[in-house]
Design a protein around this nucleic acid. Structure first.
Length: 554
RNA sequence: GCGCCUGUAGCUCAGUUGGAUAGAGCAACGGACUUCUAAUCCGUGGGCCGAGAGUUCGAAUCCCUCCAGGCGCACCA
């Protein structure tokens, strides 16, 4: 609808210029807004205001010229008016709204799907937590945001691959193996001291206990380095499996799990660094290898190979992103915790040195979560073992409420997650508000069926019975759904869907309280059932993108 | 000290690349269940959009300077 009006305006503008009524002007963009105020019509355009400066004319005058040259060939416009400083307001014919409703009914689960992605291959990497411990609440936000962004982009017509990068090479993993060994010794009766760098969670004891049960205490006197390496791989695998299960229960399923170790096969990382050195992006100071990230705007150069000869995480990450692009992805999206923001210039430098456009890598920062319980902050640290796991949140709060809670705010906004609040099954909890709207519609459908009323078919009904102001508001809101998807997908902002859903549910609830859908008047009933069914379709489609279930009964 | 994010109603937050009178939920107060589900609805109050200066027809939104909070500033990941 928005697009149609934009086209009309563009045509009118061109005609005005051709006729010489307006000087040659270029229009960088125009805004057509679904207006909130009924007095301002259904849509409002600000073309004239934007052009005023360029054309050096009064915006109202410009608006009049454009208005005069509008040719409404599809016959969708009831009337237009010029208002305020020079807005052109459009009033759309009722039957056009009715057709929109039919469109929803026909498209059903496809309604809201777009083709702005043109099947472009996009990879989204998220979560990517070290397998050194179970996922905690902090990972959960990134997981949901990533998951919903991929759903959004799929809906918008992109071909998406979801990937989890496993940091299973390096110090942290070594510390994991060491921690298991220490617990192993402890369980075998030795007295041990636990260093700061080791992981203290109970899951470490469980893993160590598992090894004793299976293999006894034969590793007490083995070569320590080999044992640590063996324990590391056992622990890493066990923990990763648990992570996968937790994610699955949270509704997040990845297409690929990519191991950091993969990058080191066949000296992959070293070869890449050699190549970059030949190209002049990497240099040696005799002891260490540096990447000239300052060439690309970073504040200082970064080490890629340490004094001890080991490549850094950054080195592997360049190789990883090279690998991503070589797999044919046209765009790559990384979702990180906001505490990694200082890392962005480095990685952008990396991919530019590899010859890729900076814009091909989008990085979304997700702000950290403050976990509260009844208003009191809960301390968290993976290493000390004090944390609330994703599993606990799932068990306590439930999948739908947890997901919805993480989607109610912009990614770059700090989020307080209060366990007590999130698990409350009350009106404090917005997820139920939306689900309830859906359940109510299902209830109406059930009632209609019980009374032997057939589900309405467009050809048989007369939508001109829909005369209540809320009915028009509802239809307009439903029409806005694809536009909301468009905006959310373009800006990679899942929270827009949540806010849209809240608004839609709100207007529906209000309508429901004021009007009976099923009444004595058969034609009115049919028209309203048709409308309410369309609301249900949109609720379902949007909830599906959020990964929140659309309940039929509550 | 430098960089990034945030600052909007008592609280938690929206505000669609600058647009018409700044919105929602919660909390407070007053109402609505003989009804297709009251997990709902209707009404009332509530604002120096952190502060100051600037850009223009027009600023919560853009530029600059401050103030406050969070997070970074590794040969950790």
């Amino acid at each position: 609808m928005k697009n149609k009006i934009t086209k009309l305006l563009e045509n009118a503008l061109n005609i005005s210029i051709q006729k010489g009524q307006l000087p040659e002007v270029s229009l960088p963009y125009m805004e057509v807004e679904a207006s909130g105020n009924p007095e301002h019509g259904d849509y409002a355009a600000n073309v004239a205001l934007i052009l005023a400066a360029q054309a050096k004319q009064n915006p109202r005058k410009i608006a009049q010229i454009i208005q005069a040259n509008l040719s409404d060939q599809e016959n969708i416009i009831e009337k237009t008016q010029i208002a305020g400083p020079g807005f052109i307001n459009f009033f759309i014919k009722d039957n056009i709204w009715h057709q929109a409703l039919r469109n929803i009914d026909e498209q059903e689960e496809k309604y809201g799907c777009l083709d702005i992605g043109f099947g472009k291959k996009v990879q989204v990497e998220f979560v990517s937590a070290n397998p050194t411990g179970p996922l905690h609440i902090g990972h959960a936000r990134g997981a949901v945001v990533g998951d919903v962004i991929t759903n959004l982009l799929t809906t918008a017509g992109y071909r998406i691959s979801k990937e989890y990068y496993i940091n299973d090479a390096g110090n942290q993993m070594n510390n994991l193996g060491k921690s298991v060994l220490l617990r192993y010794r402890e369980l075998s009766g030795e007295k041990i001291e636990f260093p700061e760098t080791c992981y203290r969670g109970d899951y470490i004891k469980d893993i160590a206990g598992g090894i004793i049960k299976k293999e006894g205490n034969k590793y007490l006197n083995s070569n320590e380095e080999e044992t640590i390496s063996y324990f590391t791989s056992i622990a890493g695998q066990a923990i990763l499996e648990e992570i996968k299960v937790d994610l699955r229960d949270f509704g997040v399923v990845f297409d690929e799990y990519f191991s950091e170790k993969e990058l080191y096969k066949n000296n992959g990382v070293t070869k890449l660094l050699d190549k970059l050195q030949k190209q002049g992006f990497v240099y040696s100071d005799g002891e260490t290898l540096w990447f000239k990230t300052t060439d690309f705007g970073d504040e200082k150069d970064r080490v890629v190979v340490r004094k001890n000869g080991e490549p850094t995480y950054f080195a592997a990450d360049i190789a990883y992103h090279q690998n991503k692009f070589s797999r044919g992805f046209e765009m790559v999206i990384d979702i990180w915790g906001a505490d990694h923001h200082g890392y962005m210039p480095r990685l952008w430098a990396g991919i530019q040195a590899l010859g890729y456009d900076k814009n091909a890598l989008k990085i979304i920062l997700v702000q950290l979560v403050n976990l509260l319980r009844g208003g009191v902050p809960v301390a968290m640290s993976t290493r000390s073992g004090e944390f609330v796991t994703l599993r606990e949140v799932l068990d306590e709060v439930g999948r739908d409420a947890a997901r919805y809670n993480f989607l109610m705010r912009r990614c770059d906004s700090h989020l307080d997650f209060d366990l007590e609040l999130a698990k409350k099954q009350s009106s404090d909890n917005p997820v139920y508000y939306v689900q309830y709207a859906h359940a109510r519609i299902c209830s109406i459908m059930r009632m209609a069926q019980e009374r032997g009323i057939a589900l309405p078919v467009y050809a048989d009904i007369d939508l001109s019975f829909l005369n209540e102001p809320e009915e028009k508001t509802l239809i307009k809101l439903l029409v806005r759904y694809p536009e909301t998807i468009y905006g959310a997908a373009k800006s990679l902002e899942p929270h827009r869907i949540t806010f849209y859903l809240n608004e839609l549910a709100g207007i529906f609830h209000s309508y429901y309280n004021k009007n009976k859908v099923i009444s004595e008047n058969d034609q009115l009933t049919a028209a309203r059932l048709f409308l309410v069914k369309a609301v249900r379709i949109v609720l379902q489609n949007a909830l599906k993108i959020l990964g929140v279930s659309a309940l039929e009964k509550m």
